[in-house]
Amino acid sequence: MKQMITALIAGLVFGAGLTISTMVDPLKVLAFLDIFGNWDPTLAFVMGGALTVYLPIYQFYVRRAQRTLFNEPCHLPQKKKLDGPLLLGAVLFGVGWGLSGICPGPGLANLSQGSTEILVFIVALLIGMISVNRAKRAQ
């Protein structure tokens, strides 16, 4: 129960940040990605703001302690080497992001908007995820 409450709070703060930063607006995202056109640098400040908070707390506390504030172990990624799936996945994700201006966080944050467009995007996103999970398990 405690885990659910803390995760809910983290999700609320994360979602509020996505909305206030205008990261939820696909047109804003596409304008940021359009570096050869009328480039809008705003979203670089979003990344800057997020790293300003996460990086120092991670480096000075989490990396050393490797424990949560409740003294439970942190689940940190162990992979270090580059591999084919990482590179191919990043390319495919970039194409999808560039076509729509929507990455997973802002996509979900837009759900309450309730339009057909966002519902279609999220269903397609889940189908893409499930397909890869199935393919991985089949291997």
Binding site: Q3, T6, A7, I9, A10, G11, L12, V13, F14, G15, A16, G17, L18, T19, I20, S21, T22, M23, T42, L43, F45, V46, M47, G48, G49, A50, L51, T52, V53, Y54, I57, Y58, Y61, V62, T68, L69, F70, C74
Partner: peptide, 18 residues
């Protein structure tokens, strides 16, 4: 955008700390 970004970072680090 920067303040919104800081909130995103805060939500993310809270999930790690909690």
């Amino acid at each position: 955008a920067f303040i919104g970004g800081m909130l995103i970072g805060t939500g993310a680090i809270l999930l790690m700390l909690f």
